Simulated scan of single mutants.
Amino acid sequence: MSEGTMQRRAQRDQREERAKRLNRVLVCAAAVPVMLVAAGCSSDSGSGDSTDKAAKAAASASASPSPTVQAAAYGKLPEPCEALSKKTLKDLVPESKSGKEGKSDDISTRANCSWNSLDNNGVKGSQFRWLNVSMLRFESDAARGPADKLAQEYYTKQVQDAQAVEGAKSTKSEPVSGTGDQATAVRYDLKKKEGTFKQQTVVARVENVVVTLDYNGAGLAGDKTPSAGDLMKDAKKAAKEAVEAVSEANGAGGAKASGTPSKSPSESASKSASESGSKEASDEPSNDASKSASKKPVSKS
């Protein structure tokens, strides 16, 4: 074999070797994007699944209804000093010229009015009477519960407070029928330096409103002590009238005041409750309202 032939064969072998190496490089280079694409698809697939799950969870949470409670039946209170008729005031506090309305940040939620009467008979003594009407209205609250339940809890507390007055003697309690959804009357004697006061307290609940009526009387300067039975009779009458005023102020026609079955909440009451939401109840009674509602007998100023 000639030298030229051997040289051409060596060159051909070198070209074939370079071609093989180049082919291997190209194959590897082509494989890298495929692997990256596969990895990318795998990564995107996992991310997509996670995103879908999060979206579904959020949608499920937004679709779940938030806790709700039944709207309060009554959305307002009557004017406290007009809750009792002129005739009733004349019978219970004959010498009173007008009532004194208590201070309140929101008269649609809490209100009270009191009257003093002193019938001065000179050397024959005097007859003293004191009357107070307090009203507290509750709103439904998602955290605390429906308005009528909150009112019932407060009603129970008011009765207990009336039964546990410091210094009270001969305390007696009795249920009162035909006045709102539930009512209790508490009576007791309370001795003061001016004389013995006969205290009558009637606590009544109608829907989401609690009415507390305090009425007491005393014979001063030697005059005779009034009859507890007569005072209680008058107190029950006045309490029923105050409860009727609450129902009438909300368009219920006083039906609940006479102890008849509950009616559907009036449109005005439902609207007011819906607009108020959980603002109150709020609506937990303030210290001033609680003090007014459970005010104890007072003597002549």
Rank of each mutant, 00 (worst) to 15 (best):
M1C: 01
G4F: 05
M6T: 06
M6R: 12
R9P: 03
R12H: 14
R12Y: 10
Q14R: 09
R21I: 02
L22N: 15
L22D: 01
N23D: 14
R24I: 11
V27S: 05
A29F: 05
A38I: 07
S42Q: 09
S43E: 04
D44W: 04
G46Q: 13
S47A: 05
S50L: 03
T51A: 07
T51N: 10
A54M: 00
A58Y: 02
P65S: 09
Q70F: 03
A72D: 06
G75F: 02
P78S: 02
C81H: 13
D91H: 11
L92P: 08
E95R: 01
E95I: 11
S96R: 14
S98I: 06
D106A: 07
W115M: 10
W115I: 07
N120D: 15
N121Y: 10
F128Y: 15
F128C: 01
N132Q: 12
V133H: 12
S134P: 00
M135Q: 01
R144H: 02
R144T: 03
G145C: 11
A151R: 01
K157V: 06
Q158T: 01
E166F: 01
K172E: 00
S173E: 06
T179V: 15
Q182T: 08
A183H: 02
A183R: 03
R187S: 15
Y188T: 01
D189I: 02
Q199P: 02
V203E: 06
V203P: 06
R205N: 00
N208W: 03
N208L: 04
V210E: 12
D214G: 10
D214K: 13
D214Y: 12
N216H: 04
A218D: 08
G219T: 04
L220Q: 11
D223Y: 14
K224S: 04
T225A: 10
P226R: 09
S227Q: 05
A228L: 15
K233G: 00
K237D: 14
A239T: 10
E241G: 04
E244T: 05
E244R: 14
V246T: 12
S247L: 03
S247V: 00
K256I: 13
G259A: 03
T260N: 13
P261A: 07
S262Q: 12
K263A: 14
E267F: 10
A273G: 02
E275D: 08
E284H: 13
N287G: 05
N287E: 08
A289E: 05
S292G: 04
S294K: 04
V298K: 03
S301T: 09
